[in-house]
């Protein structure tokens, strides 16, 4: 197992380097100019100075190497310093990846936006899982019953209808017609007492439920298939034959075995959920990571776009690894050579 993890980690490194190169090169090919938005009265030499100050004066490979150093060495060091309150070396002189639009370090921007995304996305994923697993179990256990038919139909809808439509529908129903919930997420809202906590719940309700429905649809289909697979296994018949109660057979024997592939799917889905949250954040105007990425893309803020999209790639690679390792740990039948 350790051998396998090490091999996978060793493979993850070149993958990430290749992806970082693709992203960097792609953005570098961009036929746009960061000084293009500035007034035309600025003379050419001043423009050149602005470009130099943004770090654009040097050759491609040097800028790439510098970005790599900033991303893989400087920023992690800064994070360690921040987390433990220690100082490692000359932390003030370290070059940081800076946003062109705000001139503040990209990592600070991301840390500022991360809590909102984690709350909305994380909670919706959790709720989605909690809805999906019972539905999947019941659907499979009572296969072809009305509950199963309904569950399959609803999950097909949840799976097919894009979140940007369910989100807008929710706004029409709950904000425009019924006026129960606010359609815009207020990030400056602070929870201090019970009533402000209630306001927070109300403003989180729609984005969380929209995303949760989408996640639940996918996971419940998978859960149903996994339970169906296990219900016909020999060990289930054995368990029943030796007189175990049905509840124990279902919730101990079948459930534990069915959860193996589902846990893997849940781990695999986490990075996708972050990506999909871009749309939900846009609809409900949650100023999380997705919103940050969209603003950066529209404003051609190259360093911010580079860092954010690379972070998404890192998430995908890490969670793929976690999923594979989890699968090996949970399922003793899987042996990695």
């Amino acid at each position: 197992m350790t051998h396998y993890i090490i091999r996978r980690l060793l493979f993850a490194v070149p993958t990430l380097i290749a992806i970082s190169f693709i992203l960097f090169a792609l953005l570098d090919l961009a036929p746009n100019d960061p000084t293009g938005q500035l007034p035309l009265t600025i003379p050419a030499e001043a423009r050149e100075q602005i470009r130099e100050s943004l770090g654009l004066g040097e050759a491609f490979h040097i800028r790439y190497a510098k970005w790599m150093e900033q991303f893989f060495v400087n920023e992690p060091l800064n994070l360690i310093e921040r987390a433990f309150g220690v100082e490692i070396g000359a932390s003030e002189e370290r070059l940081r990846v800076r946003s062109w639009a705000t001139r503040s370090p990209v990592v600070d921007l991301i840390i500022e936006r991360l809590p909102q995304t984690l709350w909305v996305v994380g909670l919706s994923y959790l709720i989605g899982i909690l809805i999906a697993i019972p539905i999947g179990i019941v659907s499979a256990y009572r296969q072809y019953s009305w509950f199963d038919q309904l569950g399959t139909f609803v999950s097909m809808i949840g799976f097919s209808v894009p979140t940007f439509f369910t989100g807008l529908l929710a706004i029409i129903v709950f904000s425009v017609t019924l006026q129960w919930l606010p359609s815009i997420y207020d990030t400056t809202h602070r929870v201090t007492d019970l009533s402000s906590f209630w306001v927070q719940i109300k403003q989180m309700a729609m984005p969380v439920m929209v995303l949760a429905l989408f996640n639940a649809a996918q996971i419940s289909r998978f859960m149903r298939a996994a339970v169906l697979d296990n219900l016909t296994q020999d060990y289930v018949r054995t368990a029943r034959a030796k007189g175990l109660r049905e509840r124990i057979v279902l919730f101990i024997h079948v459930l534990r075995n069915s959860l193996i592939p589902v846990v893997t799917l849940i781990a695999l889905g986490i990075p996708t959920v972050f990506g999909g949250a871009i749309i939900t954040e846009k609809i409900f105007r949650v100023n999380g990571i997705g919103e940050l990425l969209i603003t950066a893309i529209q404003g051609a803020d190259i360093p911010l776009v580079q860092t954010l999209s690379f972070l998404f790639a890192v998430l995908i690679v890490i969670f793929n690894l976690i999923a594979d390792v989890l699968y090996g740990i949970l399922d003793p039948r899987i042996r990695y050579g």
Binding site: I19, L27, G275, G276, V305, L308, A313, N320
Partner: peptide
Amino acid sequence: MFLALPLLPLLLVVIML
């Protein structure tokens, strides 16, 4: 490697560019 690419951000970037 293609499966590890962050697709939606990448699509948005390519279109912008």
